[in-house]
Design a protein around this nucleic acid. Structure first.
Lengths: 113, 113
DNA sequence: ATTGACGTGCAACCTTTGGTTGCATATTCG
DNA sequence: CGAATATGCAACCAAAGGTTGCACGTCAAT
């Protein structure tokens, strides 16, 4: 079972600041460390580090435009991440549901009055 | 939109060790710091700290049984977490899909030959 | 072309968090 | 009682998220 989600991806999207960054990059179709820093409660330098993490995880790419380093999300990769995220939720849900069903069956079998 | 997921819950399930602990607790219907430590690549003390985090997030509860502190997952809460997890994935997917659609429409409108 | 403003990168430093070892304490069982 | 077991607590360590300060390219306007 082991969730099939590689931990690098999880640790990338596990951070709340990074999730907000992804949201902003999606909403605005890209951005720079400075532009993101202006919309987040952290400094530009912190944003830079997060962008590096997202880049290593393959969730964003950047290209130099003059003095700017413009980042954009890799839609393919983020879609994959979203799918795996949903999978984990679904897996937990399924296991809980199955346990509940078994518990009910035992309950019915036990009170055989 | 802001994902509706409170960050305490995310940071709780964002950690790979804690996810494995939840899996084990589900699979075995509960466990102790010692029993979990025996099945994980970390020490009992580390497990204890993780259990405290999960407890604060409301994902597990424990009751003292003799010298044991037996933990079990709160199925209601974990189900809620699973649902919200799936929601985030779905939200990203929807936004990406919408962006793609808009991009295609612009593309069609632009090459008006 | 020079100057000033802007976007970045880099280094030092702090705090939190995940993890460890070591030891003390309480409880169960033979 | 005494040994084994389950836990709690404290000190300590490394990595991650965050900050400040500074140096360096690049753009733009006089």
């Amino acid at each position: 079972m082991s969730t099939a989600v590689d931990d690098e991806l999880w640790s990338a999207i596990g951070d709340p600041t990074r999730r907000r960054m992804l949201d902003l990059l999606i909403a605005e179709g890209g951005g720079t460390a400075t532009s993101l820093g202006g919309q987040l409660p952290v400094t530009r330098q912190a944003v830079t580090k997060h962008l590096a993490v997202l880049d290593r995880a393959g969730l964003v790419h950047c290209d130099q435009v003059g003095r700017e380093r413009r980042y954009r999300v890799d839609e393919q990769q983020l879609a994959r991440a979203a799918a795996e995220l949903a999978d984990v939720g679904a897996a937990w849900d399924a296991r809980l549901r199955r346990i509940k069903r078994i518990a009910e069956r035992i309950h019915r079998a036990t009170r055989q009055d």
